[in-house]
Computed example of a mutant assay.
Amino acid sequence: MNKENIIKLVGNQIQDIIALETIRSYTIEHLDKSDKDYQKYVSDLYVYIVWKNKTLQNWKYLLSTNLPDSMYYELTYNGDKKEWYLDAYRKIDNQCISEETMIAELKRRGLM
């Protein structure tokens, strides 16, 4: 492995560490400190990367934690401005809809 590849690898690892630590800090900051399980949540907290992508100098991360709070996080790194943007979401619903059902509905509505 040449020096340039090592630098890229280290750079990517740094982005990952920043992303993971950003969500870890954010999560702990937003936990209910009066919750009887607060200390357990903090000590057992595990943040993981669900998906990431790099386009040009920009990074996009989707992350989550092992907490039972249905939260997921989107982090975007703007390489031009050297800034991170955080969006926090709560999963409201999760449905499985078959393609067959969707096609039948489109036909029923005259869209196919």
Rank of each mutant, 00 (worst) to 15 (best):
M1G: 15
M1D: 09
M1L: 07
N2V: 03
K3D: 00
E4N: 08
E4Y: 12
N5C: 03
I6D: 00
K8R: 09
K8F: 05
K8Y: 04
G11S: 06
N12A: 04
Q13K: 03
I14R: 07
Q15K: 15
I17T: 06
L20A: 05
T22L: 07
I23P: 11
I23S: 04
S25N: 15
S25C: 13
Y26P: 10
T27L: 03
T27H: 04
I28E: 05
E29D: 15
E29R: 14
H30W: 12
K33V: 11
S34E: 10
D35Q: 12
K36G: 06
Y38A: 08
Q39G: 02
K40D: 15
K40P: 09
V42N: 08
L45E: 13
Y48L: 07
K52I: 08
T55R: 14
T55A: 14
L56W: 11
L56C: 07
L56G: 07
Q57V: 14
N58A: 06
W59D: 08
Y61M: 07
L62S: 07
L62K: 07
L63I: 09
S64M: 09
T65H: 00
T65P: 06
S70F: 15
S70K: 12
M71D: 12
E74L: 09
L75V: 04
T76R: 13
T76K: 14
Y77Q: 03
N78D: 15
N78Q: 09
D80E: 14
E83R: 10
L86A: 00
L86M: 01
L86W: 02
Y89K: 01
R90G: 12
R90N: 08
Q95W: 01
C96L: 15
I97K: 14
E99F: 07
E100L: 13
M102N: 11
M102I: 06
A104Y: 04
A104E: 04
L106R: 14
L106Q: 12
R108H: 02
G110P: 02
G110C: 07
G110W: 09
L111M: 06
L111V: 00
L111E: 06
